[in-house]
C-alpha cells in the first residue's frame, strides 16, 4: 500500500503547481460567470432573462466550455511528458510493483484530480444558479455543461495515451481519432439533447482507460 502511496506522491509533486493554477482559473471563471449572470439579470429583468434562457437556450457558463478539456490535457502533459523525457519511465517501470498496476495508479490519480474539479465545480455552479432561476432552468444548465466536463475526463485519457506513446509518428496517428472523438462532446446542441447520448460518452471514457496500457507496452518493446 505504501508503494502505491509513493506513486501518488510522485504524481502530486509533478502536477501540484498546475493544479493550483487551474483551481485559480476555475474560481475566476466561476466568479466571472455569476457576475455576468447578475449583470444580465439586472439589465434585462429576471423574468425576461428566464424567458430568454428557455426560448433561446442561453448558456450561463460559456467560460467553462473548454476549461475541463484544458485541465485534462495539462494533467496528462505534466504527468507523462517528464516520464518520457530521457525515458524516465524506465525508472518508474523498474519499481518492484506489477507494471500494469503502476500505470493504472498513475491514470487513476489523474482521473481523480479531474473528477475532484468536476464534483466541486458542477454542484457549486448549479447551486449558485438555483438562487435566481427555477429548477427546470438549473436542470437544463446541468445537461448543457455535463458533456463539457465529461470531455475533461476523455481528454485526460486520450492525452495520456498520446503522451505515453514512444513514437512521434504513432502519436500523430493517435491524435487524429482522439481529436475526432473529443469533438463529439462539443457538438453545440441545445440543453438536454445529449441526455440519451451521455451513456455512450461514459462508455467511451471507460474504454479509453485501456489505451495508455497499449502505449506502455510499446514503450517496453523499445519502440522509438
Amino acid at each position: 500500500m505504501f508503494m502505491y502511496q509513493s506513486i501518488i506522491y510522485k504524481e502530486w509533486i509533478k502536477t501540484r503547481s498546475m493544479i493550483v493554477l487551474m483551481a485559480i482559473v476555475f474560481l475566476g471563471a466561476g466568479i466571472y460567470s455569476f457576475m455576468k449572470i447578475a449583470e444580465t439579470g439586472r439589465l434585462m429583468g429576471m423574468i425576461n432573462y428566464w424567458e430568454g434562457t428557455i426560448e433561446k437556450g442561453v448558456s450561463f457558463f460559456e467560460y467553462f466550455k473548454y476549461l475541463p478539456l484544458l485541465l485534462g490535457i495539462l494533467l496528462a502533459v505534466t504527468q507523462y511528458v517528464p516520464e518520457l523525457q530521457f525515458k524516465r519511465l524506465k525508472l518508474t517501470l523498474h519499481l518492484p510493483l506489477p507494471e500494469k498496476n503502476i500505470i493504472a495508479v498513475m491514470l487513476a490519480y489523474g482521473l481523480a484530480v479531474e473528477l475532484l474539479f468536476i464534483l466541486i465545480t458542477v454542484p457549486l455552479l448549479l447551486l449558485g444558479l438555483s438562487f435566481g432561476f427555477p429548477r427546470e432552468i438549473v436542470w437544463g444548465a446541468f445537461w448543457l455543461i455535463l458533456p463539457w466536463f465529461l470531455a475533461g475526463l476523455a481528454a485526460y485519457l486520450i492525452a495520456s495515451w498520446i503522451c505515453l506513446e514512444p513514437q512521434w509518428k504513432q502519436r500523430v496517428l493517435d491524435f487524429i481519432p482522439g481529436a475526432g472523438v473529443i469533438s463529439f462532446f462539443f457538438m453545440g446542441v441545445k440543453a438536454g439533447a445529449y441526455q440519451p447520448f451521455v451513456i455512450y460518452l461514459v462508455g467511451f471514457i471507460l474504454l479509453a482507460f485501456a489505451f495508455s496500457f497499449y502505449s506502455a507496452i510499446r514503450f517496453k518493446e523499445g519502440k522509438s
Partner: peptide, 12 residues
C-alpha cells in the same frame, strides 16, 4: 538500475 546520464526524477 542507473540509467545513462544519471537520469533521475529531476522534479524532486
Amino acid at each position: 538500475l542507473l540509467l545513462e546520464g544519471h537520469i533521475q526524477h529531476s522534479y524532486f
